[in-house]
Design a protein around this nucleic acid. Structure first.
Lengths: 282, 282
DNA sequence: CATGAGCGATACCGTGACGGTATCGCCGCA
DNA sequence: TGCGGCGATACCGTCACGGTATCGCTCATG
């Protein structure tokens, strides 16, 4: 099976619409229809049910979507890593570490410091990512190692080491009634009419519907909280970034967040191994 | 990058010879040369160093070989799993369990028995494999779950659960001088002039050079041992298959063998999960 | 009930990517 | 100095892939 066929199928399976999928792929609809039915013929299996008004996945289609995404990621990763290996061999070698912008900054600073002090350490390019983006960078080979957060990020298929487990706090504007409390329940903050939860962009760049403000960055969000427009639920360590206008209140029943360092299981990079070892010594 | 290009590159990188690689791929040498140099141009990186007398891998080439193999496996796995999902949706669903022929037979029997007794269990197709073959079946999606043996099999990239850890014994012909001993050192049996270790076929079907007999199956090997032509070093549980003409002697310093059940980390199969749970309850 | 719009499939056509044959250029070796 | 081995290049044919036009079906709408 060619990656072109897989890309085509994944596009249709995600859009569930040949026209839109074709547009996304930058080709016309007829060749896409043909490519898919040819793929189905070669597999000897129906992947999509065309219901003349809607397209749905068959069982086999759902499996191919799931496995196909992983396969496309692996191909892309091979390409990126080879390219980066060539650059490393030519110039100064480096590793790319993906981390969520604004999260675990203290831990990250200690990690980078500890690693840089090691003999044989190389430059670390830190990629500051939006929520969930680190995972994609790591799966597609644009990053070599990442700081992820269980249970928010999907760790399946990665090797990981746990670095830190912490509770979560609500970040509220100073002076808000809830700031007098010493502890909150999750249900008390998820549905406040005066402080709706912010909306993060989806992977496709669009925002989900809802009353909350559209978030682009952490610093922007903190400002919005100061203005009394929203609130945020984040791991405990974010307290270090608080200003006078922000108050953190622990949420008793929020799930614990574990910060982990993750890397692809077949990584052979000396630098990645050293980074992980440095992280474990913190 | 297309899988065709990756297949071509992997073939050349493994053979380190354009002519042989082309032959293996079933195409002529010139289009292969062209495809590779085009790939190099698109990556913007040299993958191979043509030394007019020999071909060697660059740093980037070594990375692409390693990552590319994994990517090709993933694509093949997507294809196989989709095909099998279609069959399962049509007829009776089943899982394929890969296991080394002649190993862990007792444990396997118990596992199959325990799983079959579960509600909602499906047929289990047991694939009996040559040494190391289970891993490939699992990586390429021809199997859903496998019984592997640490440290012999490469477990990177799989989720695993340990089932059993045991020492190793030497299987010797009855009457051999060493059978009087209660314990042996590994070094005492690996280089016996009268009992050379057997040779297993490589992945490409050829046999390595050496004095030992060429092995095709376990039963055949046991017969060769009875005839005093070779010996075998295997996990302790193989004792259950001994006959009168065979004697097992523990090897004190042989590495412990851990039998594990392994599956792809992104498996969503209910049957695989049930099998693993059944295995853990043994 | 007729009409139109939306959507996937089909028919048909052009082009360029891929593969094959012939040959070159380079190097090591007898 | 010729020969053999190997990868690169030149040149050519074909078929796979993509584009345009259109069909056939179904549902929404007046």
């Amino acid at each position: 099976m060619e990656t072109r066929e897989l890309r085509y199928f994944v596009a249709v399976a995600e859009e569930l619409h040949f026209g839109r999928a074709a547009q996304r792929l930058g080709i016309a609809q007829p060749p896409l229809s043909r490519a898919i039915s040819q793929l189905e013929r070669r597999l000897g299996a129906a992947l999509l049910m065309r219901d003349s008004r809607s397209v749905t996945l068959t069982e086999a289609g759902a499996v191919l979507l799931h496995e196909g995404r992983a396969a496309l990621d692996a191909v892309e990763a091979a390409e990126h890593r080879a390219r980066r290996a060539a650059l490393a061999a030519a110039g100064r070698p480096s590793v790319v570490l993906a981390t969520k912008a604004g999260a675990s900054s203290e831990l990250l600073a200690k990690l980078l410091h500890a690693y840089a002090a090691e003999p044989g350490s190389v430059d670390v390019d830190v990629a500051l990512c939006g929520p969930g983006e680190q995972e994609r960078l790591l799966r597609t080979g644009r990053a070599d190692v990442a700081i992820l957060h269980h249970p928010f990020d999907d760790l399946t298929g990665f090797d990981t080491e746990e670095l830190l487990t912490e509770g979560q706090v609500a970040i509220l504007p100073a002076g808000h009634p809830l700031t007098t409390r010493t502890s909150l329940q999750l249900s008390e903050v998820t549905d406040l009419p005066d402080l709706p939860l912010p909306r993060w962009p989806e992977n496709d760049g669009t925002y989900p519907d809802g009353p909350g403000p559209e978030a682009q960055s952490h610093s922007q969000l903190f400002q919005l909280i100061s203005l009394g427009r929203t609130l945020l639920v984040v791991p405990d360590s974010a307290r270090s970034q608080l200003t006078d206008e922000l108050v953190a209140v622990p949420i008793a029943d929020a799930p614990a967040v574990t910060t982990v360092i993750a890397w692809p299981p077949h990584s052979r990079s000396r630098a990645v191994a050293d980074l992980v070892r440095a992280a474990l010594r913190l």
